[in-house]
Simulated assay, not measured.
Amino acid sequence: MPLPAKAFQRWLSGVAPDTSTADICRVSGVKRTTLAQQMVRGKVAETTVVSISRAYNINPVAALATFDTYSGLASSSLPPTEKELVSQIATVDLLRAVIVRTAPEGSTGPGQPGLSPTPHATSVKNWVDAIDDGELRHRVSAATGVAPQNYSAQLTANRLAPELAVATSRAAGVGLASGLVATGLVTETEAGWPPGARQAALDRLSDGDLTALAGERLQAMGRTLRRQEQDQEQTERIWENLV
Score class of each variant (00 low, 15 high):
Asn150Tyr: 15
Val124Ile: 04
Gln154Asn: 10
Val140Trp: 04
Val174Met: 02
Pro79Asn: 06
Thr102His: 11
Val86Asn: 09
Asn158Arg: 04
Ala157Ile: 00
Pro80Thr: 12
Ser123Ala: 15
Ala167Thr: 05
Gly179Ala: 06
Asn126Gly: 12
Ser152Val: 04
Asn150Arg: 14
Ala103Val: 11
Val92Met: 11
Asp129Cys: 06
Ser141Leu: 02
Val174Phe: 04
Val98Tyr: 10
Thr118Gln: 14
Leu115Phe: 08
Asp93Glu: 09
Thr102Asn: 09
Thr122Cys: 08
Ala157Asn: 11
Leu164Met: 03
Gly173Leu: 05
Arg101Ala: 11
Val98Pro: 08
Val86Ser: 05
Thr183Leu: 06
Arg139Pro: 00
Pro148Tyr: 04
Asp93Phe: 07
Ser75Arg: 13
Leu176Cys: 04
Arg139Asn: 03
Asn150Cys: 09
Thr144Pro: 03
Thr156Ser: 13
Thr183Phe: 01
Pro113Lys: 06
Leu185Arg: 03
Val98Cys: 14
Thr102Asp: 08
Gly134Trp: 00
Gln88Arg: 13
Val86Gln: 07
Glu84Tyr: 02
Val124Thr: 06
Leu155Thr: 09
Thr81Gly: 15
Ser107Lys: 14
Gln88Lys: 08
Asn158Glu: 06
Leu164Val: 02
Ala172Gly: 01
Glu163Lys: 13
Ile131Cys: 06
Val128Leu: 11
Pro80Gly: 07
Ala177His: 07
Ala172Asp: 03
Ala171Val: 02
Ser87Glu: 03
Gln149Ile: 14
Leu164Cys: 01
Ala130Ile: 01
Ser87His: 01
Ser169Val: 02
Gln154Gly: 10
Leu136Cys: 08
Val128Glu: 01
Ala130Tyr: 02
Ser76Thr: 08
Gln112Lys: 10
Val124Cys: 11
Ser75Tyr: 03
Ala171Leu: 03
Gly134Tyr: 00
Ser169Met: 03
Gly109Val: 09
Asn126Trp: 00
Lys125Met: 07
Leu160Met: 13
Gly109Pro: 08
Gly72Phe: 10
Arg96Asn: 08
Arg137Gln: 13
Ala143Arg: 12
Ala103Tyr: 13
Pro104Glu: 06
Val100Trp: 07
Leu94Asp: 13
Pro104Lys: 11
Tyr151His: 11
Gln88Leu: 15
Ser75Trp: 09
Ala121His: 07
Leu160Gly: 01
Ala177Phe: 07
Ala143Lys: 12
Val98Phe: 06
Pro117Leu: 10
Ala121Arg: 14
Gln154Lys: 13
Thr118Glu: 15
